[in-house]
């Protein structure tokens, strides 16, 4: 038996004439935090909604821990905790009533102490009797996460969990997600536009473009596979003549104070550094191409 917790195979989904997914293949291993990234309309949210049995694919296979989501959505949902892109809570409910409702749906034993313990873990315990509408966006997102976790699912599907949150809430949610994966061993899929968070959080990344997974792997794997060894170097001043740089790089480009270069077989970044040091160019920064720049480059290539 494989340790793939989530499997999507040749999944197609159309909304009328609009194609959302066109033969998407994806596997997520147990205990992994997978980041779904890609441009708007690429199919990230549709992928999460199909996994959580909210949408039915037009064709393809969707498996959650050996359960076919299409034939047995009820049992598949028991394994899943779904966090939508906005909290989607009943604004007039108190926090306690919100949790009571979820507990009733999941047939859980639930009392005030259980609710207070759950809320306390997320810093919401003093607000237990307040209406949801009085909470800040960050507090609502925390409550929404508690609701998604109440039945102790093994898999978490998080759609844009950091959207519109302040730094503190963002860090709080990110730490919680890490804790859930590392300590509780949950398998987590995070869709996000915030690549800095994806970079910090995810063990692997799936880049979705035009309804299919264009690249899958760790950030380094994708970078090497797609772009080769690409780095950028920020200089205090770009020399007027870059003659000889082609000897230690496969290709390079210059934009403002940054030189982006790709290394060929047998070439090392040290050679490039030495090249600029020899020309008396103060180096301000030297790093591999960032995730955001890399994805922009990939998307550009894919879409063309």
């Amino acid at each position: 038996m494989s340790n793939d917790m989530l499997i999507l195979e040749r999944v197609f989904k159309n909304y009328g004439k609009v194609t959302a997914l066109s033969g998407l293949n994806l596997r997520v291993k147990e205990g992994e935090i997978l980041g779904l990234v890609g441009p708007n309309g690429a199919g990230k949210t549709t992928t999460l909604k199909i996994l959580s049995a909210l949408l039915k694919p037009d064709s393809g296979i969707v498996i959650v821990d050996d359960i076919d989501v299409q034939t047995d959505p009820f049992n598949a949902k028991k394994l899943l905790g779904y966090l939508p892109d906005i909290p989607l809570l009943y604004e007039s409910f108190t926090l306690f009533d919100t949790l009571k409702m979820y507990a009733r749906v999941w047939s859980l034993q639930f009392d005030k102490m259980t609710a207070l313990r759950a809320l306390d873990e997320y810093g919401l315990e003093p607000l237990w009797n307040r209406q949801v509408r009085t909470l800040s966006k960050g507090q609502k997102q925390r409550l929404s996460l508690i609701c998604a976790l109440l039945h102790k699912p093994r898999i978490l599907l998080l759609d844009e969990p950091f959207a519109g949150l302040d730094i503190e809430s963002r860090q709080f949610i990110r730490n919680k997600i890490e804790q859930l994966a590392n300590d509780a061993g949950k398998t987590i899929v995070v869709s996000s536009h915030d690549l800095a968070d994806v970079e910090k959080l995810c063990t692997r990344i799936a880049l979705i473009v035009k309804g299919r997974v264009a690249y899958y792997g760790t950030e380094d794997e994708i970078r090497t596979k797609v772009l080769g060894k690409v780095f950028k170097i920020v200089l205090a001043k770009i020399p007027s003549n870059l003659e000889g740089l082609t000897n230690c790089t496969k290709e390079y480009s210059v934009a403002a104070d940054t030189v982006t270069f790709t290394l060929g077989e047998g070439q090392s970044p040290n050679q490039v550094l030495k090249y600029f040091i020899a020309r008396d160019c103060p180096i301000r920064a030297f790093e591999p191409l960032g995730l955001e720049e890399m994805l922009l480059e990939i998307i550009k290539r894919e879409e063309s």
């Binding site: 909210l54 949902k77 989607l88 009943y90």
Partner: peptide, 13 residues
Amino acid sequence: SRTLERLLSLPLS
């Protein structure tokens, strides 16, 4: 308000 989406993500048909 999309709360129906949240209900449908629970084991409710």
